[in-house]
C-alpha cells in the first residue's frame, strides 16, 4: 500500500513527494504548507496538520471524539482495514471535527483525512459531519469543511449511502438558519461526498490540481470511449465548468477564509 509507505515515512519525520520522489523533512514541509519544495506538487495533508495550518493558534477544540466504526455487516476485510487505518493514522476514523477561530472569527470545522481508508464515508464520518453542522446551527456560526474522499464506504452497505442524505439534511438546516458554509475541495474529492456536502457549500473553494469528480476516471473513459483531457476532473476543470467559486493556493487559504468569514460578520452572535 502506498499509504503504509507514506505513514512509515511520516513517523520518521520524512516524506517523499509522490511526483518527484524527493524526500523532505516534515519540518521543512510544514514551512512550505506541504507544497513540494522541489516540484511544487501539492502533497496530501493529514487532518491535524491541516487544522494547524488553517485555524488560529491554539483555538481548535475537538468535539465528537471517541466514535469508531462497527463492522455490522461482517463485511469481508472491513475489520482488518479499520484496524490497519487506526494503527497507521492514530485516528478513530476519517474525519476530525471541532470548533476554532480563523482570523479571530469563530467557526466549526471538519477535515477529512484521506490517509484513513481514502476517507470513505461510513456511519462515523457521516455522524461526525452531521454533528458539526448541528453544533454550528445551535451556535449560529459558519462551517468550514475540508473534503477529501473516495466516496461512500461500501463496507457499510446502504447505511453508508444514507450518510449522504443525513449530512445533507444537517447542511440544509444550518443553511436555512442563515449560516455560512464554505467547502474546500482537496485531493481527492469524489463519489458520494462530491454528490452531497462537498457541492453544497455557499462558497466552494478548491486546492490547485485537486482531483474533484463524481464517477471514477476509468469508468468515464469506458463510458465515453475516448481520450479525456489531461486536466479532466481537476480543480481547474471544475472551475472552468462553473462548479467551484475559486481555486486558492495553500499559502493564501488562511487569509481567504478569514476574509470570507469577516464579510459574513456574525462574530458578535457567536459562542
Amino acid at each position: 500500500m502506498i499509504f503504509d509507505k507514506w505513514i512509515a515515512a511520516f513517523t520518521h519525520e520524512k516524506l517523499t513527494c509522490s511526483a518527484c520522489k524527493k524526500e523532505f523533512s516534515v519540518k521543512e514541509l510544514r514551512k512550505s504548507h506541504y507544497i513540494c519544495p522541489e516540484c511544487a506538487k501539492y502533497m496530501r495533508i493529514g487532518g491535524r496538520e491541516r487544522i494547524n495550518q488553517v485555524v488560529d493558534k491554539k483555538s481548535f477544540e475537538e468535539f465528537a471524539t471517541g466514535l469508531s466504526s462497527v463492522d455490522f455487516l461482517e463485511f469481508p476485510g472491513y475489520a482488518d482495514k479499520l484496524t490497519k487505518a487506526i494503527d497507521a493514522t492514530g485516528e478513530d476514523d476519517a474525519v476530525i471535527c471541532g470548533h476554532a477561530t480563523v482570523g479571530g472569527y469563530p467557526c466549526a470545522i471538519f477535515v477529512m483525512d484521506s490517509r484513513f481508508m481514502m476517507a470513505s464515508m461510513g456511519s462515523v464520518v457521516g455522524e461526525k459531519i452531521t454533528r458539526t453542522f448541528e453544533y454550528a446551527t445551535e451556535h449560529n456560526i459558519p462551517v468550514i469543511g475540508f473534503t477529501a474522499s473516495g466516496g461512500a464506504r461500501m463496507q457499510e452497505g446502504i447505511i453508508s449511502l444514507m450518510q449522504m442524505a443525513k449530512c445533507s439534511a444537517a447542511v440544509k438546516k444550518h443553511s436555512t438558519e442563515g449560516n455560512l458554509y464554505i467547502t474546500v475541495l482537496t485531493d481527492p474529492t469524489t463519489g458520494g461526498v462530491t454528490a452531497s456536502f462537498a457541492m453544497q457549500g455557499d462558497i466552494i473553494l478548491a486546492e490547485p490540481n485537486a482531483l474533484v469528480g463524481f464517477a471514477g476516471r476509468r469508468v468515464v473513459e469506458q463510458t465515453t470511449k475516448s481520450q479525456l483531457p489531461d486536466n479532466f476532473q481537476s480543480a481547474e476543470f471544475i472551475l472552468e465548468h462553473g462548479f467551484a467559486d475559486a481555486i486558492v493556493p495553500r499559502e493564501e487559504l488562511n487569509d481567504t477564509l478569514a476574509t470570507i468569514l469577516k464579510l459574513h460578520g456574525k462574530e458578535q452572535a457567536a459562542v
Binding site: A198, M199, F214, T223, T224, F232, F237
Partner: peptide, 12 residues
C-alpha cells in the same frame, strides 16, 4: 458516468 455528465456537474 460519461465525460459530458462530469463537465455539467453530475455530482453537483
Amino acid at each position: 458516468p460519461g465525460a459530458e455528465a462530469e463537465e455539467r456537474g453530475q455530482g453537483e
